[in-house]
Design a protein around this nucleic acid. Structure first.
Lengths: 319, 319
DNA sequence: TTGAAAGCGCTAACAC
DNA sequence: GTGTTAGCGCTTTCAA
């Protein structure tokens, strides 16, 4: 609402002086920062890279920038990001970590009163938008697939106990196997922590077992790939001696030989949905506790096959 | 420099009122933001994830946060981050992209007058600290390794022409092969762009060649792994029919079967060095144009082996 | 030591 | 339409 003449005069002055608005001043005055904090458990895992891409694409369009808070799997690092939120450096928070970050003096990131969206891990009781897939149903599908291949001894390569995803995946897997008539004796649970090395260590444990489970569900691809590499190195054939299923659907799962059977999460779309959910809350359009569920899909690769028949063959000889 | 009594009174008031300093106001007054912009070519490539970890660890200790600028391989996206720098949102810039970002109205990110550090790609003529490895020497080492295995037909899977790394790697590889007496006829150059899919496409091209090069140097691991998967799918044996070398040393290179021979870059340390270099510049301790060079190492895996001997055997029959 | 005041650069509100 | 002003919350400077 200015005359054309004035506008031109202003625009000319802008380009003459090379004027640039100062963002700190604007933020101070407007009481917002146009920044969003994204708390990531482990930047080194490419699973998060792709989600981050979706988040970035969604937020940048709306003029928001992202501040990355990498926990590097260390809970102690949460405090830093609680401070970032509490000191007004960001307008909203995106939690990929499945936990509410806790500060050094007992406050949580919720005390900042900022809009929060969680991705890939709904946190019970948290007033936030939760962008999720159905971990439990996906894990059931994994178990059903392995049962259909006549496996009778099952392994589960777990994530960290603190992870809510871990809980759901384990439950879905175990309940389906039990429902098929198997007992705890038919199931071996190997501890893990969602990284490659954990998969390697679990493989070493598995190699020492007798009898070995013939089917292994690793609760993330990084672990599945580490496991796979280690057992191949030990001379095992996949899927002849052991069937392996991962979870996440990272690109490298497709590059494994054989291609890893895995649950593919729509990572980019999860990121976009998270950005949209947060933008809606930032605009005040939404509040309360709600969930958006995206589809995950079991992708059958070459790492799963019929259970080996060695044992039954022996029993036929001695009826 | 206040009396103990006053200090206590202040501290009590702080905890009573739940006082938190406002960062925007502090930044406005202090004319700094305690934020650093990190420009990344492609967040989806785990190569950058690990460098980012090193950067984050180095900067967070000094109280700086990072704003991630993902280009997603699209040069047009640079403009956004030029604005971020120009509008004073950050105190320094870390460039992983090997290019000086250019804004929409012709300015570059340098016009912000901020300290700049480049990582993994020194940009000629730029007043910055350059954290690099010797791409050319590493590529020479790759060629020497392949020559020592008696290969005589060589492939090179290139990166994008705009990349300075691409230039160095190609030069080092080709000059070494030429110095060994081979000509352009013995070398096939396949176009690529530093992602998995480019590796797959190059493999399809390679499968159509006759005669095929028996040695392939892919200028990044993601491409090498994509290439490898595709040729294995087509029934080729590695390294019996083709030797493959990658570049970068991402974790997944070690998980490939056979393990990928590759040049391992010290990614985390590159990130730390970049953080340190930027902190030094931010403190005004350093200026001008300087380089820090870290060691990259050729790690021999199972994807390289003696050149197949079929052709020489034929020529012995008809001397 | 402590208190008071100026001002960073912007935007919203108001008077002209 | 246009020009002026107050104040966001902090830090620095200067006076008491």
């Amino acid at each position: 609402m200015v005359s054309a003449a004035t506008r031109d005069r202003v625009l000319k002055a802008v380009s003459d002086t090379g004027y640039r608005p100062n963002v700190a001043a604007r933020n101070l005055r407007a009481r917002r920062s146009m920044m969003v904090l994204v708390v990531v458990p482990n930047l080194a895992n490419p699973f998060y890279g792709e989600i981050l891409r979706g988040i970035d694409d969604g937020l940048v369009e709306a003029g928001y920038g992202i501040i990355v808070g990498n926990l590097d799997r260390q809970t102690e690092r949460e405090a830093r990001y609680v401070d970032v939120a509490l000191s007004g450096q960001v307008d909203g928070v995106l939690l990929l970590s499945g936990r509410v970050p806790v500060g050094s003096s007992g406050q949580t990131i919720c005390d900042a009163g900022l809009p929060i969206v969680t991705v890939c891990a709904s946190i019970p009781g948290l007033d936030a938008t939760h962008i999720v897939i159905d971990d439990r149903a996906a894990a059931r599908e994994v178990a059903t697939h392995l049962l259909s291949l006549n496996h009778t001894r099952f392994g589960y390569l777990a994530g960290p106990a603190s992870s809510i995803n871990e809980t759901h995946r384990r439950r879905g897997y175990l309940e389906t196997i039990r429902a098929a008539g198997f007992s705890g004796n038919d199931i071996v649970i190997l501890p893990g922590r969602y990284d490659i090395q954990a998969g390697v260590e679990a493989a070493e444990e598995w190699l020492r077992l007798a009898p070995r489970p013939t089917a292994l569900f690793a609760s993330c691809d990084a672990m599945a790939l580490g496991f796979m590499k280690r057992v191949i190195t030990a001379g095992c054939r996949i899927p002849d001696e052991v069937s392996i299923v991962g979870f996440d659907g990272i690109e490298f799962a497709e590059l494994a030989e054989p291609t890893l059977t895995t649950v593919r999460q729509p990572r980019y779309r999860l990121g976009r949905a998270a950005a949209n959910g947060l933008l809606a809350r930032l605009r005040g359009e939404q509040g309360g506790n709600q969930s958006v569920r995206l589809e995950a899909k079991l992708c059958i690769g070459g790492t799963t096959g019929q259970a080996p028949v060695a044992a039954p063959a022996v029993s036929l000889v001695h009826p």
